[in-house]
Simulated scan of single mutants.
Amino acid sequence: MTIEARLEELGITLPEAAAPVASYQPFVVSGQTAYISGQLPFVEGRLVTGKLGADVSLEQGQAAARASGLMIMAQLKAAGLLERVEQIVKLGGFVASTPDFTDQPKVVNGTSDLMFEVFGDAGRHARSAVGVPVLPLDAAVEVDAIVALRPA
């Protein structure tokens, strides 16, 4: 089954890949590895902003992380790489949060669970989930990815 067919089966529609908000590339391919720049969470076309532990709930944070994961896949699709995914190798999750918020791993599960849901065992990955005081554009979450690719 293709990834596109799997997405359709799950009822998932990928958003349009977001343009960079600064001076960087949304993805870079080196050999058989794709590096996806940090992706911000857009839900229904709107950026999810705020801080976990203050004005963003755990559930909203998980939904934001899932939206960042959808944007990672949108970047892979825009690059013509979605069907070449061999393994999601590593995710880096950044969660804008208050100093006393400690559930960053639960927030980033929103992305991790999505990757397993879509890619199966190839979606299992290494990961970091860290709290930060602020993210670009006041985003609540940002997630980047390292992806192993099948040969073209």
Rank of each mutant, 00 (worst) to 15 (best):
Met1Lys: 07
Ala152Cys: 08
Leu58Trp: 05
Asp55Trp: 05
Ala54Tyr: 15
Ala65His: 01
Glu86Thr: 14
Val89Glu: 11
Gly38Asp: 12
Gln62Val: 04
Ala17Gln: 00
Met1Phe: 12
Asp144Met: 15
Ala17Thr: 02
Met73Ile: 06
Gln87Asn: 11
Ser97Leu: 08
Val48Asn: 08
Thr98Asp: 03
Thr49Met: 08
Pro15Ala: 13
Ile72Asp: 02
Val147Lys: 05
Ala19Cys: 06
Leu58Gln: 12
Ile88Val: 14
Ser30Lys: 13
Lys90Trp: 11
Gln60Asp: 15
Glu117Gly: 05
Ser37Gln: 14
Thr33Met: 15
Ala65Ser: 04
Val28Asn: 10
Ala65Ile: 03
Ala126Leu: 13
Val147Glu: 02
Ala140Phe: 06
Phe27Ile: 13
Leu114Glu: 02
Glu59Pro: 07
Val132Tyr: 02
Thr2Val: 03
Val143Asn: 13
Arg6Trp: 03
Gly123His: 01
His125Pro: 05
Tyr24Thr: 09
Met115Arg: 02
Val89His: 13
Val21Gly: 14
Ile88Glu: 01
Ala64Tyr: 05
Leu81Phe: 01
Gly131Asp: 00
Arg66Ile: 06
Gln104Leu: 13
Val134Met: 15
Pro26Glu: 05
Gln60Tyr: 13
Ile88Gln: 05
Ser128Gln: 01
Asp113Trp: 08
Ala140Val: 08
Pro105Gln: 09
Val29Ser: 11
Val43Ile: 15
Glu16Lys: 14
Gly120Leu: 01
Asp100Phe: 15
Pro151Cys: 04
Leu76Cys: 03
Glu16Val: 07
Pro151Asp: 09
Met115Ala: 06
Ser37Pro: 04
Glu9Lys: 10
Leu82Thr: 02
Asp100Thr: 14
Pro41Leu: 09
Arg124Asn: 12
Glu9Gly: 10
Glu59Gly: 10
Leu10Thr: 07
Glu44Trp: 10
Thr49Arg: 11
Leu58Ala: 13
Ala22Asn: 11
Ile3His: 02
Pro133Tyr: 00
Gly61Tyr: 01
Thr98Val: 02
Glu117Gln: 08
Ala122Gln: 09
Val95Glu: 05
Val56Glu: 10
Tyr35Pro: 14
Ser23Trp: 07
Glu4Val: 15
Lys51Asp: 12
Glu83Met: 07
Val89Tyr: 13
Phe101Gln: 02
Gln104Ile: 05
Leu7Asn: 01
Gln104Gly: 11
Ile88Phe: 03
Ile36Trp: 07
Gln75Pro: 04
Gly123Asp: 00
Ala63Gln: 15
Asp103Ser: 15
Gly80Met: 02
Leu76Gly: 00
Ala145Cys: 13
Glu8His: 14
Gly53Pro: 03
Ser97Asn: 15
Ala67Ser: 07
Leu114Thr: 04
Gly131Glu: 01
Leu14Asp: 00
Asp121Ile: 09
Arg6Ala: 12
Ala74Trp: 01
Phe42Asn: 12
Leu149Val: 06
Pro20Ala: 03
Glu59Gln: 11
Ala129Pro: 06
Asp113Ser: 14
Glu44Leu: 10
Val118Ser: 00
Ile72Glu: 02
Asn109Lys: 09
Leu135His: 01
Gly31Arg: 04
Leu82Pro: 00
Ser23Leu: 14
Ala126Thr: 09
Gly80Pro: 00
Ala148Thr: 12
Gln62Tyr: 06
Ala96Cys: 09
Gln25Gly: 07
Asp144Arg: 11
Thr33Ile: 06
Ser57Trp: 08
Val95Asn: 11
Ala126Asp: 14
Gly53Cys: 03
Leu82Glu: 00
Asp138Val: 08
Ala63Val: 07
Thr33Cys: 08
Leu40Ser: 10
Gly110Asp: 04
Ala122Lys: 13
